[in-house]
Amino acid sequence: MAAAAPRTIALVVQRDLARAITAIENGYASASAAGDTLPPRRESAPAYVVGVTGPPGAGKSTLVDRLIESFRSNGDSVAVIAVDPSSPFTHGAVLGDRVRMQRHSGDHGVFIRSMASRESGGGIAPTTHHAIALASRAGFDVVIVETVGVGQVELEVVGVADVVIVVTVPALGDSVQTIKAGLTEIADLFVVNMADRPGANKTSVDLKHMVRESGKSIPVLQTIARDGTGVGEVMAALTESRGHHHTNAARSVRFDVVREVRDRAVRRALDVLDGSRGRSILERLANREMTRAVAREELLDLALEEVIHAD
């Protein structure tokens, strides 16, 4: 590929993008209004959205740093949305992903934003998909979304990404077994990072076996994100998938719709449970006028009725 001049995004647009994301996060503006301060996207196609998920400490941020470098050398401007979990108790969070990406700080073609997962139990902040849309609107060619994947939570990333990289490490060979059903559903690419550690080949073989059993053809690659080994192959796979990312878009939209339906159902159910009928059942339970099991049944009927017969 011919070396293109790496594209950049005006600093004032980056500032307004940052503020628009905050407005969405904090509910100051609706999703449709938040981007009003941004110029309309000039490119006809939206940004290519790459999801990177996997357990804490697997080297996701280090790999993202390498991907930024590679996309930049192809000329693409890159926004990173890095989601870290909020404490369920204090709602606070330490957002440390950008530590690994600091060398891109002076590059005006790179925008990095950390987000706490807030009330979503999951790896994806409720507003992440709006943040991605805003970064795309601001003109970024590529948006990389890093999320912590633990168990089922990492499935969520599919709802927002065109392509999903699942990062794992040799020492976690066992956990590959426990989460295997979900993983082949969402991964477009498996990366066994820390290939400098013992056991990388065994983990790759295990993963390949799992992929074969699932009847899919998902590449399994090895990297040493710390020194960049293997990142070229990851980029080659991403470039290949980018050519037909409309098929991924279809899958992503499907997940997104399922997620939206679930969120709305939960909201409606909560409204009912917190409403007068729900409260009266809970009161009778508290006064021992009914058993737990009966209270559960009645509440469930109430909630499901509301969810299913909603307008």
Binding site: R15, A18, S86, A93, L95, R98, S105
Partner: peptide, 23 residues
């Protein structure tokens, strides 16, 4: 609080870039 941590050896430029992007 939500705390963004950026690591050691930050220049003023790096601090301000991070602060703006993180808002």
């Amino acid at each position: 609080m939500e705390v963004v941590y950026t690591g050691l050896h930050q220049t003023p430029e790096m601090i301000v870039t991070a602060a703006v992007q993180e808002d």
